[in-house]
Design a protein around this nucleic acid. Structure first.
Length: 429
RNA sequence: GCGGUAGUGGUGAAGUGGUUAACACAUCGGAUUGUGGUUCCGACACGCGUGGGUUCGAUUCCCACCUACCGCCCCA
């Protein structure tokens, strides 16, 4: 064991990669139905792209980012999330222009990087699937994005979902609320956990989702952001909840839910699922929200946006815990046994002919004895085992056996080479 | 970055300061010279995460490091 993979990375091996493909395929199909198109952006960006969008929250930028200087002394960051890069591309390629119909709807999937201590479902290289929609302030788009996320998870067999929503309102709302929160917390300063003492002035909203029990007590009595919404913010939020009701999407309003980033406004949401593999109770699998200021922040015009991201590793963990039945994609249709050097050559031709007909076919490449070859056929879960020996070679025939019921028949070899499907329907039930 | 637990073959694992590191599964070979999923027999650890130390001798004791898992910070 000379070399090992870097800390916090994983090899996705055959047997598991099929699950990934399935999850990705499901996303592509569903997102297409919503008219979202794929965008592929670089896996690394200039450090500034992320430091800018992450809003100076020092921990994220200094501690959690995978960054380095390249040979040209450019400060590079391996993307820690999808949104910033998509927004950068949106601006750089002027997708805000009149040529692109609004809203611009895009999705992405791929690896993301965070320099953190690995735990189950949290790795340094992990994968996200996400969507972003630009160019509409309508609450309807908020709800479309949410419903798409819910649909997606349901399609993957995750049904005991909890959708939690909240609003961060507009700038005015947040400024008012931030002050109100500080005013409330300051008298309790000494009772707060050390972490929350830190957070109080840096990012007071973060105190709200502290896990420390002593903080919980104080937070319970804290003012709610819902009482500080401006008229516009209130209107937006009301519309969102009404639309969710109309669509029959169940949700809870959690006024203590916040985001670590400054660019979010109005609707934010998290979708949680219940699985003991991911910890006690409901844990977040998907998170998203509206970010009307972000395009501008990266040098574009004033252009609203909304989106979500979800972690694929956690999703897969969840599906496994629910014993989700992935479609079987690696079953073999035919295994061709060749019982001599000559027969082996002919077997290769048969295998090729079958593959051309779109059957999954394979043969032995280790010059193994017939016995071992038949074992392989069984092991590989082949539906049919075709046998070629000197006997068959002479008469230009081939032996076909249905592995499920043991029925077998000897036929002209060209029947297999020309139309295997017809041969099966003719000879086997 | 901080704290805790662990690290033996392809896999699950037992075990000991000292000649051959259990057992099971898987794999390969044979019984059965052309038919599988059962059975029987046989083979299968460059040696016990890496490096150093203690010792006559270490996989077993000590130290450092690496990695995994759990918790904290963080969670875009």
């Amino acid at each position: 064991m000379r070399y090992q993979r870097p800390k916090g990375t994983a090899d996705i091996l055959p047997g598991t990669s099929e699950k990934w493909q399935f999850v990705e395929e499901t996303a592509r199909k569903l997102f297409a139905a919503y008219r979202y198109q794929e965008i592929r952006t670089p896996m690394f960006e200039s450090f500034d792209v992320f430091s800018r969008t992450s809003g100076e929250t020092s921990d994220i930028v200094t501690k959690e980012m995978y960054d380095f200087h390249d040979k040209g002394d450019r400060h590079i960051t391996l993307r820690p999330e999808g949104t910033a890069g998509v927004v950068r591309a949106f601006v750089e390629n002027k997708l805000y222009g009149p040529d692109t119909p609004k809203p611009v709807k895009m999705y992405y999937m791929g690896p993301m990087f965070r320099y953190e201590r690995p735990q189950s479902g949290r790795q340094r290289q992990f994968h996200q699937i996400g969507v972003e929609a630009f160019g509409s302030e309508s609450p309807e788009l908020d709800v479309e994005v949410m419903s798409m996320a819910v649909n997606y998870l349901q399609n993957l067999g995750i049904d005991d979902l909890r959708v939690a929503i909240n609003t961060l309102g507009d700038k005015q709302t947040r400024a008012d609320y931030r002050q109100a929160l500080i005013d409330y917390l300051e008298p309790h300063f000494e009772e707060l956990s050390d972490d929350s003492k830190e957070r109080l002035h840096k990012n007071p909203l973060r105190v709200l989702d502290s896990k420390a029990p002593e903080d919980q007590l104080i937070v319970d009595g804290a003012p709610s952001i819902l009482d500080y919404l401006t008229d516009d913010a209130q209107k937006h939020f009301d519309k969102v909840t009404r639309l969710l009701d109309d669509l029959g999407i169940k949700y809870d309003v959690d006024h203590t839910m916040v985001r670590g980033l400054d660019y979010y406004n109005h609707t934010i949401f998290e979708i949680m699922a219940n699985a003991k593999e991911l910890g006690e109770g409901y844990t977040t699998i998907c998170a998203g929200g509206r970010y009307d200021g972000l395009v501008e922040e990266l040098g574009g015009p004033q252009m609203p946006g909304v989106g979500f991201g979800l972690g694929v590793e956690r999703l897969l963990l969840l599906m496994d815990s629910k014993d989700f039945q992935f479609p079987d994609t690696f079953g073999l249709d035919a295994y061709v046994v060749g019982i001599s050097d000559d027969a082996s050559v002919e077997a290769l031709k048969v295998v090729q002919a079958l593959r051309k007909q779109d059957f999954k076919a394979d043969k032995d490449y280790l010059a193994r004895k017939p016995k071992a070859q038949f074992k392989s056929a069984d092991k590989l879960d082949a539906k049919f085992t075709l046998t070629l020996g000197d006997k068959e070679l002479e008469s230009n025939t081939i032996h076909v056996k249905n592995m499920a019921d043991g029925n077998e028949v000897t036929v002209d070899i060209n029947e297999v080479k020309d139309n295997f499907a017809e041969l099966i329907s003719k000879n086997f039930k």
